[in-house]
Amino acid sequence: MRFGVVVFPGSNCDYDCYYVVRDLLGEEVDFIWHKERRVEGFDCLILPGGFSYGDYLRTGAIARFSPIMRAVSGFAARGGLVIGICNGFQILLESNLLPGAMMKNKNLRFICRFVNIRVENNLTSFTNLCQIGQVLKVPIAHIDGSYYADHEIIGTLKENNQIIFRYCNEEGGLAQESNPNGSKDFIAGISNRQGNVLGLMPHPERASESILGSEDGRLIFESVVRAVKGRVK
């Protein structure tokens, strides 16, 4: 199968994602420059973390107008798998491919640390190798990561099982101390209604090797491979 990693000006986790797919998963992967207008031959697109356009104005606000985003929307509408990580998630929000918005972390500072997230839905192409309630140790690294959506949207997300990951403590409990950025309802990752677009603030690509402190993030990439390869068969 083939992954595509979209590179915006200011993306900086592009190579880290590329490395995980090519060197750790052994799958095919290409970079896609943001000025491209077409995405063909890909099974899954990754919008990586970083500071697209310097995060100026609002995170993701300028990147959503990159030529590639029209193609990404089309790809998603056709059922293609899309993962937005950190800044990628913010771009998906600004593009309306996912609902909600990001606010500054509750402590107003950048936070880089390992956190725990709980798998809330394992019936997706991104989590099919996880158990419901499984706790994954994955790092975050952001300053605008406090997920916000109004009551109505949160209700819809719950109703459709679109909340995929929640911040939690080591045992899987939801406690304010383990909600690092003050996200609404502990939300760390959500999908669209169809379940083929995932956005999450934590960085699974940084938790894909034991030498870096955790391999839990790999489950997300491997789930995608399993979903795509299963579909082909």
Binding site: F110, C112, A141, L212
Partner: peptide
């Protein structure tokens, strides 16, 4: 150091707080 992204590039095998940082 938690305000610094010390993990990006996925090479930081010994993070800040030790005697020295180690980058593979």
């Amino acid at each position: 150091y938690e305000q610094y992204d010390y993990m990006i590039r996925t090479d930081t095998v010994l993070r800040p707080g030790g005697d020295a940082a180690v980058i593979r």
